[in-house]
Design a protein around this nucleic acid. Sequence first.
DNA 1: CTAAGATTGGATCGTCAAATCCACTTCTGG
DNA 2: CCAGAAGTGGATTTGACGATCCAATCTTAG
Lengths: 209, 209
Amino acid sequence: MSTQTARKDAPSTSKGRATRDRIVAAAADLMYRHGAAGTSTPALRDAAGVSSSQIYHYFADKDDLTRAVIAFQTQAILANQTPLLAKLDSLNALNAWRDVVIDAAREHGGTGGCPLGSLSSELSDHNPQARTALAASFTAWAAAIREGLLGMVGNGTLRPETDTDRLALALLAAVQGGLLLAQAQHTTGALEAALDTVIAHIHDQATPR
Amino acid sequence: MSTQTARKDAPSTSKGRATRDRIVAAAADLMYRHGAAGTSTPALRDAAGVSSSQIYHYFADKDDLTRAVIAFQTQAILANQTPLLAKLDSLNALNAWRDVVIDAAREHGGTGGCPLGSLSSELSDHNPQARTALAASFTAWAAAIREGLLGMVGNGTLRPETDTDRLALALLAAVQGGLLLAQAQHTTGALEAALDTVIAHIHDQATPR
DNA sequence: CTAAGATTGGATCGTCAAATCCACTTCTGG
DNA sequence: CCAGAAGTGGATTTGACGATCCAATCTTAG
């Protein structure tokens, strides 16, 4: 017997699709605020305004739903980040990105952390499928950052030998670590320190002029 | 009626203390591997070799136990880190610390993450007492790092105007973010990139010679 | 040595969550 | 328009977990 979780077919009617979407959106919200384990099917049922059977009509089990939430949040974050990162054409643009990240964290006083980071911390060790999906999400996010840095190399802002791969990973780790600390300390101090330190190092890699 | 969780008195006999310690140690291990929510009292009962009533004899409820585990892990981490950080007298010593952190992560393939980081991600938003304790733990950890950097300022390795506070926070965030990503990606790449980038920036702050 | 208090074992209770079932209604392709 | 598939509602089953109770045993101060 396989331990693999079965996949459900996509809804074939538009009504079905709407219901499925409503469930995923509500689940994403609840899981962001209470964690995956902290989100019960009764609570989700009420939040999404569906009956319990709908949830299991569209998702094989809670793991399957969780994976849908990961996909949803990945998409949300990339959609939010990619435009900002695509036009990283100057050190100023990099600082603007920094400000957006920090302002977002400040808005809810550090609470919540990163939607992907929280899920990753909770699920990676015990849900291999979730872990794989989250690893891919982080890789895609890092790639988007790297793309931005590559732009800065391309237009001569950064030296050609700049290790954009490494810097992208360092920036992503700074975001994740900074958000995690913000969650505990209710301050964005660590997030700012981490981002500013990495960015300062990037400044030092700028082409002399 | 108060929502505050009552504190239990410390055990008065040495046997009682041993039992309490055994419970905390087993709980710390289980919570590290399965999270706080993922650690059930039956599982803890078996792992610690006690009966369920013991747990509630020594701890008011699961929250109280969780706080004890936070204290336990904080103590464990500080005991492990402080000696290393106390003798940060050179850039080489800083790199040695980096190696220890990375080797530790590599040892279990990134699994588990940081005991404090994982608990923080899980508890900060919903358990104010745990959040406060964890915030204090992180502050103490950052202070230990800063102490080491101050040593390097004191002996002239780093410039006097070095912002050790900020760098300490940046290093801690790099550790937390790097470990979180290592958990998802099963690689220490991001951890290395983050630490090396911050450390490279510290190198640049070294006094010219 | 001996009571008072500390500690222990394990049955038990109430609650709640995950998942299933089945009867009913709404869609939609031909 | 009308079968048959898709979608819906809600009761229900099953099992686990946090927490409590109480009787029995050990520890220690006097």
